[in-house]
Simulated scan of single mutants.
Amino acid sequence: MHAVFDGHNDVLLRLWQNEKKGGDAVAEFTEGTDKGHIDLPRAKAGGLAGGLCAIYIPSGDLVLKEPDADGHYVTPLSEPLERAPSLDIAMEMAAIALRLERAGSWRLCRTMADIDNALADDKFAAVLHMEGCEAIDADLTALEVFHAAGLRSLGPVWSRNNIFGHGVPFAYPMSPDTGPGLTDIGRELVKECNRLGILIDLSHITEKGFWDVAELSDQPLVASHSNPHALVPVARNLTDKQLDAIRESKGLVGLNFAVTMLRADGRENADTPLSDMVRHIDYLVDKLGIDGVAIGSDFDGALIPREISTAAGLQNLVDALQKAGYGGAELAKLCRENWFRVLRSAWHDTENA
Score class of each variant (00 low, 15 high):
T111R: 10
M112Q: 09
M112Y: 02
A113E: 06
A113S: 08
I115C: 04
N117L: 00
A118W: 00
A118E: 06
D121N: 05
D121P: 03
D122V: 01
D122N: 12
D122K: 07
K123A: 10
K123M: 09
K123H: 04
A125F: 10
A126G: 11
A126N: 10
A126M: 14
H129V: 07
M130H: 14
M130Y: 13
E131V: 09
E131G: 12
C133K: 09
E134H: 13
A135H: 11
A135C: 12
I136Y: 08
I136K: 09
I136C: 11
D137A: 12
A142Y: 01
H147G: 09
A148Q: 15
A148L: 07
A149F: 03
L151S: 05
L151H: 04
S153A: 13
G155Q: 04
G155Y: 00
G155E: 02
P156I: 00
S159Q: 11
S159L: 07
S159G: 11
R160G: 08
F164Q: 11
F164C: 08
G167N: 10
G167I: 04
G167T: 05
V168T: 15
P169M: 06
A171H: 07
A171Y: 03
P173K: 03
S175V: 11
S175W: 03
S175Y: 04
D177W: 05
T178E: 15
T178N: 14
G179I: 12
G179D: 15
P180N: 15
G181K: 06
L182Y: 07
L182M: 08
T183K: 11
I185S: 14
R187K: 13
E188S: 10
K191Y: 02
C193H: 02
C193P: 12
C193T: 03
N194W: 02
L196F: 01
G197Y: 14
I198E: 13
I198H: 09
I198Q: 10
L199I: 10
L202N: 15
I205T: 14
T206S: 15
E207H: 13
F210Y: 06
F210V: 03
W211A: 04
V213W: 01
S217K: 03
S217H: 02
L221K: 04
V222N: 11
V222D: 09
A223F: 05
N227W: 00
N227Y: 01
A230E: 00
